[in-house]
């Protein structure tokens, strides 16, 4: 086991802190008020924003603020075993976590009784779907002109046995041996120290969390650049 540890190679051949190629494109759903696509390697997420618009049923309206409503889901054929269409507990949880991740930068108090709907769908899944979805949604909200203090950048950190890595793919999520795989998706407000999504599954020593956050900070700088470039492209068109 220790021998394997020293020579740990990522299945994809990437360096330990090397991210997959990212792509971002804004304006991919013409009907939507704002939309974007974001990819980490083979993981492709698209997001569309509709609103602010009148919220129905009426009793759900909030006269003090607009409401953010996120729906995240996998397309049925985006994973190896077909996913039954429609929400399940996992997708409902991720939808809510995505709302929590995005809300801190949104200024929607000026849209009382309205809802801003964010629809996120994963077209092709190779791990990191929630983080790609958050990056796409952040872009789509900006594209829709929703008042925002900043962008949200999101990436999955992780650990294979004892090695910290960035941007896990599916082969790495299924890694076996040693301390196993750890999946640590994070989202933060760009250029800040404020984390808006924190989830974790696996095994990690508390004292190593600082290391992983430092890696996340660096990764999010790169994501932010990709996001900014995509937004500029749509404005210049």
């Amino acid at each position: 086991m220790t021998k394997e540890t020293k020579e740990l190679k990522r299945p994809s051949g990437r360096g330990l802190t090397e991210m997959r190629q990212m792509k971002a494109k804004v304006g991919v759903v013409p009907n939507a008020d704002g939309s974007a696509m974001f990819t980490f390697g083979n993981t492709i997420a698209i997001a569309a924003v509709y609103g602010p618009r009148q919220l129905h049923p009426q009793h759900m309206q909030d006269p003090s603020t607009g409401i953010l409503r996120v729906n995240y889901d996998l397309l049925s054929f985006s994973v190896s075993e077909r996913k039954k269409p429609g929400p399940n507990r996992r997708s409902q949880e991720i939808s809510k976590m995505t709302e929590f991740a995005l809300l801190p930068v949104l200024d929607i108090k000026d849209f009382p009784n309205t809802v801003i709907d964010v629809q996120i769908y994963i077209i092709q899944a190779d791990a990191g779907t929630r983080t790609a979805g958050i990056n796409a949604a952040s872009l789509a909200l900006a594209h829709a002109g929703i008042p925002m203090k900043n962008l949200i950048c999101s990436v999955a950190l992780g650990k294979l046995d004892k090695e910290l890595i960035i941007d896990l793919d599916k082969d790495e999520e299924d890694f076996e041996g040693g301390e196993g795989p750890t999946d640590f998706p994070l989202a933060k407000i760009a250029n800040s120290d404020q984390f808006t999504l924190i989830q974790l599954d696996g095994k990690i020593q508390p004292e190593r969390v600082k290391e992983i956050i430092d890696l996340a900070n660096k990764a999010c700088e790169k994501i932010y650049e990709v996001q900014k470039k995509a937004l500029k492209e749509v404005i210049e068109q």
Binding site: P104, E179, I198, Q199, V209, N217
Partner: peptide
């Protein structure tokens, strides 16, 4: 696990962020 303290699961729930300092404080 194997004589080491491990965090196995974690989830932040709510629309207010945690700062890096707060996370590091919790690790202590």
């Amino acid at each position: 696990w194997n004589k080491q303290l491990m965090i196995n699961s974690c989830q932040k729930s709510g629309a207010v962020p945690f700062s890096q300092e707060e996370i590091e404080n919790m690790m202590q």
